[in-house]
Design a protein around this nucleic acid. Structure first.
Lengths: 237, 237
DNA sequence: CCAAAAGTGTTAAGCATACACCCATGC
DNA sequence: GCATGGGTGTATGCTTAACACTTTTGG
């Protein structure tokens, strides 16, 4: 093994961990894993890997998700890097954490993984190893922050979805309830949705119209500040 | 040198870099340094160091600032971690970047540093090494984002300051101008300032009242969303 | 026909914006 | 006495928030 040319004495291991959020049309969920190696084998944790020498941080995170699910191009953002000296008891490990938003309906765990993984409701998140609990708290806070300023969560829904579903998603993110009239007004005023003529009748007899995001608007549009603003940190995670 | 117990083949060096913002009562500035080692010796860059094995990321950043200026307890936040494979031509280096806000009036560069460092106006920022230019852009965007939601920038002012100074600071952060009546109304309505009876006459004959931040409000208060909102990304950095 | 969810409009309050003049002082 | 920057109030439009009833349809 070759040591650093800049500093031969540095001994630091770098890992990437992923906070994976999903939405099943009713609740926002978090994907957790039973750790397969010691220390803490068998405890719940985020999924992660040590990085390879020739893979960027972002690609590392993408690879983790791809290996897990076969999904490519998932929504993935860097959250924060955790670098306390003693955070891992075995050796100095610095963890660069990403969070991702995925559509549970498109997400199929590879069978080898599936019995070691579980989607948790937020109220049921178990004790996590190391500082993973803090990572999850930070990720939720970030998700809320982002959802205030941008039409996030579109990554969490299937291509066609109803307004009640979208409202439920936002209610789930902020752990609160919205007035449906105001919610629809605001969302529709953004002009980023295409209404289709189809209805989804899976959750009511009347059926709700299906909408789709206008492709182009996804990247560009940022909602006015103040959107979905009434709600802030209703529950402290 | 001992290799990682988790992955003996990993060879990654970890550095911490700091984006240092300062304010001199007129303009927001950025502190840059002439790099002292190869590669790129002599080019402008952020200041940074490889981390020590037994120092946390945050402490590393604090130490960098302390060594530089003797200042302790400066405002310091993690920005982002940069981990492209080829970002440093010599070897794989991952850089965890922090940004800090300091009061230039309290900040005295140690003499050994001072001739290799310079405060730059934003319009005059030179070409920087590696991806440091991107880091600065990201830091400015983050600073603006934070200033929207919180009474930031109080770290950038001396203990006693005038409202025109505070307004100049915000104008400098957003690269725009505010209406002074609206600005004062908004700031004062936050209830986080103590007015003193003293005046600062350094910039006008009439003199401007000095204000001070209410200690307690610094941490807790977060401004309403929408404050200082008119301005968004007026200039694209 | 009834239960259950979808869909729809109006009003009131608060907030952001635009805008122009007097004040205090040192020189 | 005048030039310079500090300080102040009001009117308008927009955005948000509160609020209740009708529609559709499967069973």
């Amino acid at each position: 093994m070759i040591s650093s040319r800049y500093n031969p004495n540095q001994r630091v291991t770098v890992a990437v961990d992923c906070v994976i959020f999903g939405f099943d049309s009713e609740k926002l969920k978090l994907l957790l894993f039973k750790r397969k190696i010691d220390p803490f084998k068998g405890s719940w944790s985020l999924i992660g890997e040590l990085i390879d020498n020739d893979v960027s941080l972002e690609d590392s995170a993408n690879q983790i998700l791809y290996k897990l699910s076969g999904l490519d191009n998932v929504y993935l953002r860097q959250l924060k890097t955790y670098g306390a000296v003693e955070r891992d008891p075995l050796e100095r490990v610095i963890s660069v954490v990403y969070y991702s938003l995925i559509r549970i309906d498109e997400f199929n765990l590879k069978s080898t993984e599936s019995h070691d993984a579980h989607w948790f409701d937020f109220e049921e998140i178990p004790e996590l190893i190391l500082d993973h609990g803090q990572m999850v708290k930070d990720a939720i806070r970030r998700l809320r922050l982002r959802a205030r300023n941008r039409p996030i969560g579109f990554e969490l829904l299937p291509e066609f979805f109803t307004l009640p579903q979208l409202q439920t998603l936002y209610e789930s993110i902020y752990n609160t309830e919205f007035d449906s009239r105001n919610f629809r007004k605001k969302i529709l005023s953004l002009g980023i949705l295409n209404k289709t003529e189809k209805k989804d009748k899976s959750s009511s007899r009347k059926g709700a119209f299906l909408y789709q995001f206008k492709e182009k608007s996804l990247d560009n549009s940022s909602m006015n500040n103040g959107d979905f603003d009434k709600i802030r940190e209703v529950i402290q995670f």
